[in-house]
Design a binder for these strands. Structure first.
Ligand SMILES: [Zn+2]
Ligand SMILES: [Zn+2]
Ligand SMILES: [Zn+2]
Ligand SMILES: [Zn+2]
Lengths: 132, 132
DNA sequence: ATAAAATTGTTATATTATAACAATGCGTAA
DNA sequence: TTACGCATTGTTATAATATAACAATTTTAT
């Protein structure tokens, strides 16, 4: 059988669209609330779409916030290497796209020699606006 | 008044002890279950102890698992710079203590120039045992 | 066209975390 | 000492996040 790797179902498109439009990370239940008028009625429908979109690298989960953001990074089609900048004061989260950082982390070896196929990095601080 | 910065309350000691003894990260409700015989009866008591222990750097939260591990890193008294190695197959989580990595990340600047006062990094892969 | 497989819808429930307030303990000033 | 203010702890209830289980529907292969 053929994996529909580049096709998004209706629910997936709806969920992706609302996340892409948002300026802040969205929580699953706030997504659910927003899409109820479009026929998505229950949590599993939202979570399934989120899971799929994450696997496709279209969105990422901000683990420290249990929230979801659209990937703005074209090269990030598989979401196995993610880094975010998070403001502790406002809701601002931006994906860091820094080849040096990615390379450094992709090549990082700890002393056990364990090899990694995925990482997630979250930086916290005050954004410029909030620092003023 | 004086901040009792290095004193642990009874509940905090109980919770810390069980996390330190564990070989795997523990979930809050599994901690709750284990400590009920010692008089801790309700979630807020566990979560308060966890919050305090995290602030003191005695434990860390593994965000991707909603679970808690004891800090094995003596220099990590304030938990503002954490890195973990996580096996996708078994429950193994180890804290990475690598001065080069810490230094690299502590000095990392993204293009916005935002300064960070905290980061958390989680690496995923298969540990040696699980790779065989 | 039919059967198998995958996806979607639905209900219910599990898991994680916090709000709100009462009870208790503790330091300090009168 | 006592009584007041403040911090900590206990308790109940509920909020927020996520998944299990199964039915209905759609897609795919034969
Ligand atoms: Zn991305
Ligand atoms: Zn900000
Ligand atoms: Zn540590
Ligand atoms: Zn393993």
């Amino acid at each position: 059988m053929t994996q529909k790797i580049d096709f998004l179902s209706k629910n997936q498109q709806i969920v992706l669209e609302i996340i892409e439009k948002a300026k802040e990370p969205l929580k699953a239940y706030s997504i659910l609330f927003s899409v109820q008028k479009k026929g998505i009625k229950a949590p599993p429908q939202v979570y399934r779409a989120l899971d799929r979109l994450i696997k496709l690298g279209k969105i990422h989960k901000i683990e420290s916030k249990n929230a979801f953001v659209a990937c703005k990074n074209d090269s990030c089609t598989i979401s196995n290497a993610t880094a975010f900048s998070i403001c502790d004061s406002c809701e601002m989260v931006t994906e860091i796209s820094n080849p040096k950082l990615s390379k450094y982390l992709a090549n990082f070896q700890d002393k056990t020699g364990m090899r990694y196929n995925k990482y997630n990095l979250e930086f916290f601080g005050l954004c410029k606006k909030c620092k003023k």
